[in-house]
Design a protein around this nucleic acid. Sequence first.
DNA 1: ACCGCCGGGTGCC
DNA 2: ACCGCCGGGTGCC
Length: 976
Amino acid sequence: MQSRRWFGGAGFSFADDPVTETLSQAIRGTGEELDREPDTGVLFGSLRGSVVGLRYYTGVVNKGEMVSLVRQPQNPYDRNAVMVANVYGSQVGHIKRELAVLLANIMDNNLARVEGVVPFGVTNQFTMSVVLSFWGREENRDAVVRQITSRSFKLQSGPTGFMCADGSRDLPRKSVLLTAEELKNAFDNLFENLMDDKIGEREAVEAVCTPLLPHQKQALSWMCACENNAALPHFWEVKGELFYNTLTHSSVRERPRRVRGGILADDMGLGKTLTTIALILSNFHHGKPLCEPEKSSPEPKASTTARKNPEGKSGDGDQAEVSVAPAGHSPCMRANQAETQVVCVESVDVVQEDVVEDGDKDWVSEKKAKGRPQGGKAKATTTKKAAKTKGKAVSTSRKGGAVLEDLDFAAALSGLTQGAPQKKSVGKSLVSPVEAASSQSTDDPAARATLIICPLSVLSNWLDQLDQHVRADVKLNVYLYYGSERNRDTHFLSSQHMVLTTYNVLSADYSGSASPLHTVRWLRVVLDEGHIIRNPNTQQSKAVLKLNTQRRWILTGTPIQNNLRDLWMLVAFLRLKPFDVREWWNRVIQRPVTQGDKTGLQNLQALVKCVTLRRTKTSRVCGRPLVSLPERSVRIEEVELTQKEREEYELARTEGRTTISRYVAEGTVLRNYADVLAILVRLRQFCCHPGLLGKTTTHTGVVAVTPAELRERLIMKLRLVLGTGSDEECAVCLDSVRLPVITHCAHVYCRPCIAEVIRSEQEQARCPLCRGQIKASELVEFPLEEEEEEESNLLENWRSSSKVEALMSSLLRLRSEDDSIRSLVVSQFTRFLTILEIPLREEGFKFVRLDGTMSQKRRAQVIQEFQSDAPGSPLIMLLSLKAGGVGINLSAASRVFLMDPAWNPAAEDQCVDRCHRLGQKRDVVITKFIVKGSVEENMVKIQRQKQDLVEKAFGTKNPSERKTSRVDEIRALMEL
DNA sequence: ACCGCCGGGTGCC
DNA sequence: ACCGCCGGGTGCC
């Protein structure tokens, strides 16, 4: 079941097209990506050298510990200098001069990566040995060996002197290798069976009005434990005075603390949002509730404050009071304050319990150690300052600072801003950037708000769920940080219970100066649909890593799309030391695992297990399924083309075959990728409706004569690639293409991405996909022309098609049998959806439409309309496959019509999951329309074959093999 | 002695 | 560094 994740290639970007998808995958494995492809290197050998200058630096290393080698070309004493640092980045010393010359040469010319292990640790205060191993691409082996021997160093073949992961000394590493199949299975199951029966259940606080299901209580219990538990994390042991990491063999003086958070990777529909809401309300400081309903309050007031829709307009079904917190104006100033509504329970007594938040515990023990048990100067100061800056005097004090904070926070929450300030306010700089930067590691009582970051498409879902699950008489301050009018006041943001925002807003803020979100000290940051940040090169990912927070959570249904590399960003966000530094991740986890090392895999499994909770729809709690979803069945409906359609199709097919077979013969299939893609797309469009083709009739594959012709042709190809409604992946950023441009060699990229390539490579700039020469002046943009005219043209000269008829007869039959059943009609081609509107209208179906071009506001309206059970609400939703992918809930539908096969079966599944999820009452029936004797049939065949393939799993095949199988697929598609 | 040897000063890059 | 290297002092045994 899970194996289908493997073939999802681009995952959430839904690059449905085989050519696009795997081609860029193939490219990823080829280019000069040594640094980014740590798993592709081979070991050239190793040699013994020495580290000098130890006495000048503080970095310590143990026997067997790994060290990193960092070039220092700016070193004033030697431009060849190579610095040696330990796992935590502290400098240990330098590589001895003569050896540094060699390393500098190898490193600067990118001939090999050099990794160091210290075999004996520090034996004197001046120098020590280091074993250097050289990793690189096979074609560089000779050069490296020559460099080494010409400087009369001796390269030992193999990893002699390499330390074993178990710490045994200086023996050749005996790694147990796994077969590709074992590896694939292990990887597939990496996120399975993580359910530890030992985790208990925990009820949510009263403020949560929806009863949690057993598995949700388990998740809550687990999440609270993750946030509160102070036990040593995995791979750490106490060794005398120090703490010792068994993987890197490093030790540190300060007690390493467990990641305060983790990955909640439950399947879609198991209630990750609800569980997270429960967590936020149930586990504030010291494991106490955030706030509770006032029990004595006779009439609960429905007031969910500081809340607005993305568009600033109140949603229709929104029962709670919706108020916009105006910029620069604190909601605390509202007149109808009812301070008693919020009771923030946070007792200081907890400080003395066993399980407390680390910061406080550390503080207590620190004070004791200093023999000042009741002191706590530093703490008291911060607290006072916090109180002071809020202009709030607090007189009651039970025990030290904590109670002050509590009252202070309660006051802040309930809006007692006009209390009598005894000292003058220091302005709104409650959180100064300096404080923020310096308070990373310690527990921070000022951190109070939870920041939720999600894709725009699920923002409204969070608001709905908060309404639904939080008791109306709980006054929860939720601020939607979105839109140009958003309140950027950090004091205001810090004082919220929750702040909701999107990845885009976050990265937009980040790119500016003084990002408010990066200034606030958060209690908790939650990344919803966290796999969005799997590519570490994106602005979003960089922005996310820079957030200042105590606790970190990732919510995702698909923790790994198809590669181990996807995991790194998640690990980095969680600050899973030391793997948040790429080198250690690569050396300890990624390369060993990719090369089939059993120990590496075990380490990876342990690592994942200690931060992840994942249950699937088929998981069981105490022998019972988590949730009982209705059945779901798939039937394939074969569609026969009419005589006329068949003739048209065959004409196009023959033409396409001729072109492609020529490319195959020439071995230029991949170079002519855009043409091949165009042919395939055209055939797929023919299968749906001839009107999909638009004016893309130009003959492909003929060399253009004039620049104008070439330009026209490129624009046409660009339109083909983009206009299908399927998503395109940029081979540079590996994300959906934004601001698309097409190169003269007919490859599509984001303009900024390819511009950067050209800028950095200058005259030698080459197309990342085909290595053809590219110039900035030759990039062609999509002209913003009048598509409307074409659209109306489409509708005026209306004709039906076999597939349209097949759908219509199904829908009509369905309506006559049961007119309460709602359907999703899904296509990758948005134009097809437009075409389908005509017969639907003709037959008097009420329908709505959801596609990627619609604004968020419109989407929310449409979904609400469709989900509503009011009489006269629509029976059908026309849905573009891409738009149907993420987060949305369409459980009102129980029939799905997949109009055209997608390349990525996972995309289809995701789409079906929109309705086959919690809340679905009926059995779900999925109908796939496949035109008999067409590319569609071949696509389905190849999909099935893919599912059976094993070796694709880890990307263990080398790039040329992958390219070959890609060509084979195209041949199979065209029956060549 | 335009050497060798001795012993003190010194020390990353 | 319980080294190596440098450079000054010194000089048969």
